[in-house]
Computed example of a mutant assay.
Amino acid sequence: MADRFDLAVPAVSWLAGRALREGTVLQSFAFDETHKHLYVLQVRKNGEEAGNLCLNRLDYKGNSTGHMYLQGFGHGVSMGVQNAADGTVWIWTEAASKNGYGQGVTRFRFVAGAVRTAEDVKIRKPIPGSTNNQPSVCMTSKRISVRYRMDGKPRYRVWNLESFVDRDYDDPVADFAQTGAHPDPEIPFQGYALHGDHVYQLAGTAYDAVTNPPAKRGNAYLSCIDVRTGKLLQRTRTGAGQTLAYREPEGLAVRGSRLYMGFASGTAGSRRFSLYYKAAKDKS
């Protein structure tokens, strides 16, 4: 099983100030290490209430290799890439938007230039009575997780990926409450990633002149929860990208031995994104 990342090590810049199809901020991202593709989700311009998303595919230098539109899917809080045994690459996202957030999850193949709607994908609702379902995939452990809300409170549920694909939801690996994302519970949650026996979380807001000025180097926090116990193992403020203009934390993903964080920058209507990573691991 994968080792735990040490969140206290310094962050390293990987991509800086890259553009996406829409001029909005990135919401989440994931890697297809087999084909060296980076997938990035963003809300379409004027599409937040309807849950309309743009899925960008880029190479590892940040150059676009295509995009597709997901109409009525959600907010794009998290996503996952599944490399199937037959070579198929499946993209997992939230789906069935209500009030701008997906009420289920789905998977589909990337087709450059395509438009997908809730009517032409198979939507899964693995947790009856839940809302705001958001998936993450760990190909190291062959698991999938869904962050969801039950009675308004956020939780995580984790399954073996093969069972989930077969729609066998009755025997999850774990189910636990979201905890410890930020010292201030009012600060927005900005993404998560499942990796082995751990869930990594990102929370924080963009710079502003009053509550989060650049001089204080931001309020973005990284944290780690143990899937086996549901306990918070580590939480630390990150100074990654502190010189960026605007600097809103958005999205987490794992690629090999690196945990990546996303940050939006630039001006409204013309946002850019940057990725930073932490490489060291703790063997515990």
Results as ranks from 00 to 15, higher is better:
M68F: 04
A245V: 13
V137N: 07
D184C: 03
R57Y: 03
I225H: 11
T117E: 10
K216F: 14
L70R: 01
K281P: 01
S284E: 13
M1W: 10
E186A: 12
N52I: 02
P128D: 10
S13Y: 00
S64H: 03
E22H: 07
H198C: 08
K278N: 10
S130Q: 01
V9D: 00
S97H: 10
L259E: 00
R116K: 15
S145N: 15
P185M: 11
G129K: 05
W92K: 00
D197C: 11
G66F: 09
D86S: 07
M1S: 07
V121Q: 10
W159P: 04
H67E: 15
W159F: 05
A19C: 02
A8G: 05
Q190Y: 04
H35M: 06
S28F: 02
T238G: 05
G66V: 06
V158P: 09
C138V: 13
V121G: 10
R228P: 04
T131W: 00
C54E: 10
Q27D: 14
A84T: 13
Y260E: 02
V89M: 13
S78V: 09
V25Y: 05
G104M: 03
P10K: 04
D59R: 06
C54S: 00
G74F: 04
D86R: 05
E162Y: 05
S270R: 07
N83W: 08
V173P: 06
W159M: 12
R116W: 14
I127S: 03
H67D: 13
L202A: 06
R143M: 11
R18W: 07
K36C: 10
Q201H: 13
